[in-house]
């Protein structure tokens, strides 16, 4: 090594480690360097466990109505009280986690996949496709998004599948725009030119060289959108376009409970509302941590 003498000794310590230990060490570093990220991941893990094992955890049947126990305040037996039909609110809040997560995760996954593809093609090749897709997305964004989602669900029918599709459509422009911007600034980067010289086809370059590098900013968008998607699904249910009673869902529970706040039965709306807030909060906190995890520059 001729330039050995010029390299600071610091740069040359790195014991070879397996890919798994490396990623685990990186995960641990991201978690310990930022306690808020750690908290967000902890909350997320809790939510996943509740969504997965909810039915096994609940003390009462969420759909069982007990007329004599209607509208009881929180107690040792019913932690969050009971609703107008005597159903256990705690059990319903827990059970609803799975449905709400399912709606938001699938909606965000759909808009991420479609939006990123659309934006990546538009950003890489430009031209008429870019202009056309850009204007279509502008048109979508010109509508009040919630009204658009209402319209889609009202027109297509009141099913969970349609809620997912409506939520995906209104979120799609954000992914497409981020992807387009991130791809177009990298389209002629040095490493992309080098990949062309190495004989990679254009499609391969876009898929394997550029897209992975756009992941960090996309991750921030993704986690912000997750919270938003949950709110959106709950909002649709709240106004009666979405999940139908008696299915347990946070939005619909808040909607039903809202009628009882005036008469003093606050627990009906408060607890599902708090669960909703916690979920949105978790996903909003997650953004920076996710970005740090997928950014190779943060590794050493």
């Amino acid at each position: 090594m001729a330039d050995a003498a010029f390299t600071p000794p610091l740069a040359r310590i790195s014991p070879p480690r397996s890919a798994f230990t490396r990623s685990f060490a990186h995960f641990r570093y991201v978690m310990t360097s930022n306690p808020i990220t750690f908290l967000a991941f902890l909350l997320l893990a809790g939510m996943i466990v509740i969504a997965a094992f909810g039915p096994a955890l609940v003390p009462h049947d969420p759909l069982a109505t007990l007329a004599d126990k209607a509208l009881k305040p929180p107690s040792a037996q019913h932690w969050f009280g009971t609703d107008q039909l005597g159903r256990d609110v705690f059990s319903r809040v827990i059970i609803a986690t799975r449905l709400d997560m399912l709606i938001s995760v699938s909606a965000v996954a759909m808009s991420f996949a479609c939006g990123a593809t659309l934006g990546a093609f538009a950003g890489y090749w430009g031209g008429w496709f870019d202009r056309l897709s850009g204007r279509v997305l502008d048109t979508i964004m010109a509508f009040p998004l919630f009204v658009l989602a209402m319209g889609i669900v009202a027109a297509a029918g009141n099913t969970i599948q349609n809620i997912v599709i409506a939520t995906a459509i209104i979120n799609l422009p954000f992914y497409a725009r981020v992807a387009r911007a991130e791809v177009s600034i990298r389209r002629n980067a040095g490493y992309v030119q080098a990949a062309r010289l190495s004989g990679n086809s254009e499609f391969r370059i876009l898929l394997l060289k550029i897209l992975p590098n756009t992941l960090p900013p996309m991750m921030v968008q993704l986690s912000l959108n997750m919270g938003w998607a949950i709110l959106n699904a709950a909002g649709l249910s709240f106004i009666g376009l979405g999940v139908r009673p008696p299915t347990a869902e946070w939005g619909i529970m808040v909607a039903e409970g809202a009628n009882y706040i005036v008469s003093g039965e606050w627990w009906l709306a408060l607890f599902p509302g708090a669960a909703l807030m916690l979920a949105v909060f978790t996903f909003n906190l997650l953004g920076d941590g996710l970005r740090d995890l997928v950014d190779p520059q943060r590794r050493t």
């Binding site: 040095g190 490493y191 030119q193 080098a194 990949a195 060289k209 992975p212 590098n213 190779p296 520059q297």
Partner: peptide, 9 residues
């Protein structure tokens, strides 16, 4: 630019 011409990933 030796840095910019290498894929960061």
């Amino acid at each position: 630019d030796p840095h910019e011409s290498l894929n960061p990933r």
